Simulated assay, not measured.
Amino acid sequence: MAVFTSVTLEDLNAWMPQFPLGKAQNIRGIASGIENSNFFIETEQGEYVLTIFENLNFQQLPFYLKLMRHLADKGILVPAPVANAEGELCVALHGKPAAIVSKLEGSSQMHPQAQHCAEVGTMLARMHLAGQDFSIQQPNLRSLEWWQATVPSVLEFLDSANRQLMQDEITFQTDFAATANYQSLTKGPVHADLFRNNVMFDGERLTGFFDFYFAGCDAWLFDVAVTVNDWCIDLTTGELDWVRVNTMLAAYHAVRPFTSAESAAWRPMLRAAAFRFWLSRVFDYYKPRDAEMLTPHDPTHFERILRLRIHQDLPALPQLTEV
Rank of each mutant, 00 (worst) to 15 (best):
L314K: 10
S260K: 14
T259D: 06
R309L: 06
E262N: 12
D234P: 05
L240G: 01
A225Y: 04
V224G: 03
A261C: 01
T247P: 00
P288L: 09
G238R: 01
Y285L: 10
L314F: 14
D223G: 13
A254E: 14
V255A: 01
G216C: 11
A225G: 06
W220H: 15
L279K: 08
T237L: 00
T295C: 01
N229Y: 10
T295I: 15
W242I: 06
W242L: 07
N229V: 13
A225C: 15
V228S: 13
A261L: 00
L306M: 04
S280L: 03
H297L: 12
T247Q: 08
P299R: 13
F277V: 01
S263W: 00
F302K: 08
R289L: 09
A225I: 05
I233G: 08
T237P: 02
H253C: 14
A265E: 03
T236Q: 15
D223L: 02
M293W: 07
P315L: 14
C217M: 09
R205V: 08
S260N: 14
G203Y: 14
F222P: 12
A219M: 14
R271T: 01
V282M: 05
E292R: 11
A265S: 12
L206C: 09
V245F: 02
D298W: 12
R244Q: 13
F210T: 10
L206A: 04
R276E: 03
L314H: 13
F275T: 13
R309D: 08
P257N: 05
L270F: 04
P296Y: 10
A264N: 00
F214I: 02
G208E: 10
Y252S: 03
K287L: 12
R244Y: 03
D202W: 08
L306F: 07
A250E: 12
S263G: 15
F212A: 00
D202L: 07
N229S: 15
F214E: 14
F214G: 02
G216I: 11
R205E: 13
A219H: 11
S260L: 07
Y285G: 03
L306W: 09
N246C: 00
V224E: 07
H297A: 15
L221H: 04
D223H: 05
H297G: 07
V243G: 11
R244T: 05
G208R: 08
A291E: 09
R289M: 12
G203H: 13
R205D: 12
S280T: 10
V255W: 00
G238E: 01
F258R: 14
P257Q: 07
H311P: 12
E239S: 13
F302L: 02
M248W: 07
L314V: 15
M248Q: 09
V224W: 02
R244C: 09
T247N: 06
V245P: 06
M269K: 03
C217R: 12
D298Q: 14
T236G: 15
